[in-house]
């Protein structure tokens, strides 16, 4: 049997970085979508109320 080099710190760092970045991107995008939906709903509701009071 020949000597096999093992470099677990390098492997762990690669997986942690890649999966961590993916998680941050994914969760960030989901939160942003929720916030933007809520904001659009608020703006739309505001506009509708004003239209009704104007007419």
């Amino acid at each position: 049997m020949m000597h096999l080099p093992n470099h677990w710190p390098y492997i762990a760092a690669s997986y942690a970085l890649t999966l961590g970045c993916s998680l941050v991107l994914g969760v960030g995008a989901a939160l942003r979508l929720r916030k933007s939906k809520a904001r659009l709903a608020a703006v739309e509701g505001h506009a509708r109320r004003r239209e009704r009071s104007a007419s």
């Binding site: 994914g26 995008a29 989901a30 942003r32 979508l33 916030k35 933007s36 939906k37 904001r39 659009l40 703006v43 739309e44 505001h46 506009a47 004003r50």
Partner: peptide, 20 residues
């Protein structure tokens, strides 16, 4: 897809604000 959906919502909200 999520980011793009969010961007569309944001830009719609901006448009509505500008219009109002």
């Amino acid at each position: 897809f999520t980011r793009l959906s969010a961007a569309i919502h944001e830009s719609r909200a901006r448009q509505m604000m500008a219009r109002s």
